[in-house]
Design a protein around this nucleic acid. Sequence first.
DNA 1: ATGCCGGGTCCTACCCGA
Length: 256
Amino acid sequence: MKIATWNVNSIRQREAHVRRWLEACLPDILLLQEIKSETATFPALPFHGLGYTAEAVGQKSYNGVAVLARIPFTVRERALPGLPEGDAQARYIEIEAEGVVIAGIYLPNGNSGGEAGFAYKLAWMDRLAERAEALLAVDTPLVIAGDYNVCPTDEDYAPGALSPGDALLHPESRARFRRLLWSGLTDAVRAVHPHGTQYTFWDYQAGAWQRDLGLRIDHALLSPTLAERLVAAAPDREERAQPQPSDHVPVMIELG
DNA sequence: ATGCCGGGTCCTACCCGA
């Protein structure tokens, strides 16, 4: 089973990129973030021809997540359980396929909106940890993959790519990422590649790609039985060199 | 040091991302 995640920074701008990548890499499931499309106008039809069905959780202008799958699946949640009722930010979708629960997440960045913006990120991470712990408590085979907007360690960003106070490497953000690991989840890419750069994002500005000033902020976390099945996990860095790329590249994991 | 790029939208100057 091959599961991938990709922050595409607008599905309308990246539709052809996604189609090409699906044909080349053939994931069973592709989780998308930052589709920047409303739910009803997500362009599902172009992917049907490749054998993928789509489910989107969108909103106008910002955020938005979706699933493309070439295997049958059911939708379990369209928002992160535990968030306030009025929270309309489209950042979470949870499905089940082949007995595996798969959550696609677009975690808040936390740098904008001042203290309230950062507090929203931390609260969102608290709700995510509670969701993970509830599912793990009943031994659910679980994948939580997407744009976490957290560099877990100092190996996960290039020196100079972020300022010291950035929300992506703030101790409070990292502590909450570690809580996910302590709850029993395995960081798939680090399980396969324990050290070294495995960047998933390069800013459009200041020649970040050309200078390899990247970040590792897109992750796939696995419950224990799925971690034992893990055979491959890596970002597809070549995608960043394509014309008009997203600033993120896909991350693919394979379970045997 | 954010606003160097590249999305979005009130169509065009401004908001947002990481």
